[in-house]
Design a protein around this nucleic acid. Structure first.
Lengths: 161, 161
DNA sequence: ATTTGTGCAAATCGTTTGCATCTGA
DNA sequence: TCAGATGCAAACGATTTGCACAAAT
């Protein structure tokens, strides 16, 4: 079935959901409403739909394009431009973290903590590094500056056989 | 004065050079010719000009645009497309390392070793991290893959006063 | 002579923006 | 009501590409 189409927590006695909303849909919607409220963003239909896709399914790595297609598949009608705008707003609000893996497109990570990623060059995919990378020291920022972000990206390529 | 315009090491008894060619121009040209030869790239006028700008002035971080302007300033006539092509060829040949700092444009680093960078968000500049960052462990690549590259970028922003 | 590189402009790709319309507070 | 959001299409900036011409082996 479709994701919530209104910002009013609708009564919805549905079964398994294609977009992965958890057992009690209302709880998910409530959670998203709260995230939007805290961020000072109006709970519009579009933002709520994207919020549900992003924040009710564990940690995720999406691109604007992939999220847009996912929304279409879930029958959430919105434009690609709105997806871009919303991703930027969510990022500004600290709900997402933007990751520039390859210099072509941006990924958005629902895990906003500082953690390293694998970037699979052929597949154009971003994957969390389970463990195995640690710093002993983090550098001082240059005078007059502060650290805004620390990106660690391990580029992987298919091993040639 | 201008950078060498031919691939034949010309006798050139000039003084200080705007593009920073070292005291003995011939040596620089020879060095570039050798780099190109090792890379299996024909020593064309354009590649030699860009090679001199890139490899005779210590380690550098350039963008296609900045290198193009530099070449224009040095009276090396070539097109922006050629700069892009050449940077890609040099990168493929292992003479340069591509760095995706912000997801908008690419930087190219003449230091091809694995080392961390500061990216100054406001100024859109890339700077080497002098020291202060060290790994204790590097992760295993995923099965069937190998590590192609390890990018560490510390994003800095101007401290608000 | 044959292969390879160059230049230009057009094409492409990801992303942003202007503006008219709509919607939530 | 009225600020704030959306949708669309056009604008955009970085990069790549197709093709005719030029230069290197």
């Amino acid at each position: 079935m479709d994701i919530q189409a209104t910002n009013i927590p609708a009564v919805d006695a549905s079964g398994p959901d294609v977009v992965g909303i958890e057992a009690t849909p209302d709880a998910g919607v409530q959670h998203c409403l709260q995230l939007l409220g805290n961020a000072g963003l109006r709970p519009t239909r579009q933002r709520l739909a994207l919020g549900q896709l992003l924040f009710l399914n564990g940690h995720r790595h999406v691109t604007a394009e992939s999220l847009y297609e996912e929304a279409m598949a879930a029958n959430a009608y919105l434009s690609l431009a709105t997806v871009y705008n919303t991703l930027n707003q969510f990022t500004e609000a600290g709900l997402l973290r933007r990751i520039a893996a390859d210099g072509i497109k941006s990924f958005f990570d629902t895990d906003t903590s500082v953690h390293p990623h694998f970037y699979l060059e052929g597949e154009d995919m971003l994957v969390d590094v389970a463990d195995g990378l640690a710093f002993t020291k983090i550098p001082e920022a240059l005078p007059g500056h502060e650290i805004a972000r620390l990106d660690v990206i391990v580029h992987l390529r298919r091993k040639r056989t």
